[in-house]
């Protein structure tokens, strides 16, 4: 199941003036694996995501997806290479319906023809609609299909974000705190979906999560960041026993 390296991050450094958000982080994620990145607030988890997806330009270091560098690509190009993400504080298109949000995830795969659009030739639209309907079914979103996202509950919005990322047909899915702010029951559901995503769509998952129980359950390996540095990595059990991790989370005894 776990194959060769899909994403490799080498010596990733990101500085904002005098602040070092990331100080030489190394990370490898194998095809088909689920890797969790954990760490206290401000330890650089989201900065890592932003570097991989092209929103931030790292100061130095290398990021490669299957041997090809992602550095210097704009976010839409990175997505075209097969990297999709969700956001910690949801960034949905609030004035669109759930359906349109998911359809936008297909934007990348549309054959774009302005003339056809102007003449209302909608073959492409219908083709992609079928794909989106599969996702709607998978994520149980039928009841909200035509609702505006702004009017949906937080749990539904989280699901729409997951669906929108999946609609791009990624090879690597970056999930930024997928269960934060959800009820215990919803956490169960989302964990189930994340597991299903791996099996059903064959997606490799890189996950940032504060809920250690969920993170340990979903991931095969964990990487711990603290103040922009990699503290340790290993299986969830190893990581939880690591003295540095206990110190970072609980402080000195």
């Amino acid at each position: 199941m776990v194959g060769e390296a899909l994403l490799e991050v080498r010596g990733l450094t990101l500085r904002f003036g005098g602040i070092t958000a990331l100080g030489g982080v190394d990370l490898t994620i194998a095809e088909g694996e689920t890797l969790a990145v954990i760490g206290p607030n401000g330890s650089g988890k989201t900065s890592l995501f932003n570097c991989v997806t092209g929103l931030y330009k790292p100061t130095s270091g290398a990021i490669t997806l299957q041997g090809e560098s992602l550095l210097g690509l704009s976010p839409d190009r990175v997505t075209a290479r097969g990297v999709a993400r969700t956001f910690q504080n949801l960034r949905l298109f609030l004035h669109m319906t759930v359906l349109d949000n998911l359809m936008l995830g297909r934007h990348l795969h549309f054959r774009k023809n302005l003339l056809a659009a102007a003449l209302r030739l909608r073959g492409e639209e219908i083709r992609h609609r079928a794909k989106v309907e599969e996702l709607i079914e998978f994520l149980d979103l039928e009841a909200w299909r035509d609702s505006r996202v702004a009017g949906c509950s937080y749990g539904v919005q989280k699901r729409v974000e997951l669906g929108r990322a999946l609609a791009t047909e990624p090879r690597l899915l970056l999930l930024d705190e997928p269960v934060s702010g959800l009820t215990a029951e919803e956490k169960e559901e989302v964990s189930y979906w994340i597991n299903e995503v791996r099996g059903r769509f064959g997606v490799t998952v890189l996950l940032v999560e504060h809920d250690l129980r969920v993170a340990s359950r979903l991931s095969q390996r964990m990487v711990v960041l603290d103040r922009g540095l990699k503290l340790t990595e290993g299986t969830p059990e190893e990581v939880q026993r690591h003295p540095g991790v206990i110190r970072a989370y609980l402080g000195d005894q």
């Binding site: 929103l55 839409d76 997505t79 956001f87 960034r91 949905l92 936008l104 934007h107 990322a165």
Partner: peptide, 13 residues
């Protein structure tokens, strides 16, 4: 609605 999300979903800004 959200230029960052649009870009991250593959829309060329």
């Amino acid at each position: 609605d959200s230029d960052i999300a649009a870009e991250s979903m593959g829309v060329s800004l």
